[in-house]
C-alpha cells in the first residue's frame, strides 16, 4: 500500500492519529531546537536544577513545535504543490487547516506560560517573540515576498540557544548573542544549497527563493560569500568566552571543509551539477547539518571539561 493510499483512506474517516499531530510539530527541526537550546542552557554560568533544565528545554521544544504547526497551517497551499511537503498532515488530508491552527495556538500559549513559570519571564517573552517571528514575520510576510526570506527568517531558528541561556541566567550576554549569530549566519548557505538541488519545488510553489529571483549563478555566489562570513564568525568565536580548545579545533576543521564545499559550489555551472545529480550541493547540505551539531557539541564539551581545567580559555 502506498503512502498516498494510506493518506486517502485516513482522510475519508477524518481521524488523524497521534503521529499526525506529532508530525505537525516538525520533529526533525525540533531536534535542532532541543540540542541548541540545551547547549545554551548548559553553557550558561550558574547551576540549574536538572528538572528545571529539562522542563525549560521541553517547553522551548514545544514552542518550536507550535511554530511548526502554525507554519504548516499558513503554508498548506504551497505544501500541496511541493514534492518535499506533499505528504505532510494537512496537504494529505489527515488534519484540517483549522485543527492545525487551533493545535498550534494552544501549544504556543501553553509553552510560553509554562516556560515563564518554570524559569523566568524574560525566557517566556523571548519564546513568545520567537514564535511570533517565525509565524508572522517569516511565514506570513517574508517567505513569499522577498528572496532574503531565508536570511532574515533564519533568526527564528537562531533564538533557541539564546532562550536556553536566558532561562538559566535571566539575562542576555555576549555569549548568547554569538550562539545566535552562528545559527543566523549558517542558515542561508544551508537552505540555498537545498534550493539548488530541490530545483523545481520552489519554482512550482512560487516562493521567491534566491534561485528563482536572481538565478542559480547568483545563488552559488551568495553561498560562498555567506560561508566566508560564517567561517570568520565561527572561528573568531573560538577566541571568546564560548570557545575553548575543542571548539576552536572543531571550528577550524569544519570551516575549512565548509569553505572548500562552498568554493566547489561556486566554481560549478548548472551543466556540471546536472551531470552528477547535484552531488557537490547535496554533500554540502549534509555537511551543513554536521557543521551545526558539531559546533554546538564542541561548546557543550568545552563546558563539560572546564571543571577539569581542560575546556574554555
Amino acid at each position: 500500500m502506498s503512502d498516498a493510499s494510506v493518506s486517502a483512506s485516513t482522510s475519508q474517516t477524518g481521524e488523524a492519529g497521534f503521529g499526525d499531530y506529532f508530525a505537525l510539530l516538525k520533529p526533525r527541526v525540533m531536534t535542532l531546537v532541543v540540542f541548541t537550546a540545551f547547549v545554551g542552557l548548559y553553557a550558561a554560568p550558574g547551576a540549574v536544577h536538572p528538572v528545571v533544565g529539562f522542563a525549560a528545554i521541553l517547553f522551548i521544544a514545544v514552542g518550536g513545535g507550535a511554530s511548526g504547526a502554525l507554519n504548516m497551517w499558513w503554508d498548506a497551499d504551497i505544501d500541496r504543490v511541493m514534492k518535499r511537503t506533499r505528504n505532510r498532515p494537512i496537504p494529505s488530508g489527515r488534519i484540517t487547516e483549522s485543527e492545525a491552527f487551533g493545535f498550534g495556538m494552544a501549544l504556543a500559549g501553553f509553552a510560553v506560560v509554562m516556560l515563564a513559570l518554570a524559569t523566568n519571564l524574560l525566557a517566556g517573552a523571548l519564546l513568545a517573540f520567537t514564535i511570533f517571528f517565525y509565524v508572522v514575520i517569516y511565514s506570513m510576510w517574508l517567505k513569499r515576498w522577498t528572496p532574503q526570506n531565508i536570511v532574515i527568517g533564519g533568526a527564528a531558528g537562531a533564538f533557541p540557544p539564546m532562550i536556553g541561556w536566558v532561562a538559566a541566567t535571566g539575562s542576555f550576554s555576549l555569549e548568547s548573542v554569538l550562539m545566535f549569530a552562528l545559527i543566523f549566519m549558517w542558515t542561508p548557505p544551508h537552505f540555498w544549497a537545498l534550493a539548488l538541488f530541490m530545483r523545481s519545488d520552489y519554482d512550482d510553489a512560487g516562493v521567491p527563493m534566491l534561485t528563482v529571483t536572481h538565478g542559480r549563478r547568483a545563488t552559488r555566489a551568495h553561498i560562498l560569500v555567506y560561508t566566508l562570513l560564517l567561517a570568520a564568525l565561527a572561528v573568531g568565536a573560538g577566541f571568546t568566552s564560548i570557545g575553548g580548545p575543542v571548539y576552536l579545533a572543531t571550528a577550524v576543521v569544519l570551516n575549512a571543509l565548509f569553505l572548500k564545499g562552498a568554493w566547489a559550489i561556486w566554481r560549478r555551472d548548472e551543466g556540471a551539477a546536472e551531470a552528477d545529480a547535484y552531488k557537490v550541493e547535496r554533500s554540502f547540505f549534509k555537511l551543513s547539518l554536521l557543521y551545526l551539531f558539531a559546533h554546538f557539541g564542541a561548546i557543550a564539551l568545552d563546558t563539560a571539561m572546564a571543571p577539569l581545567g581542560l575546556g574554555g580559555w
Binding site: 474517516t13 481521524e15 488523524a16 492519529g17 497521534f18 503521529g19 506529532f22
Partner: peptide, 14 residues
Amino acid sequence: HDLHKRRFSRNLGL
C-alpha cells in the same frame, strides 16, 4: 472498526 484503533492510539498518546 479501524477507526477505533486509530482513536485508541491517539487517546493513549494523549
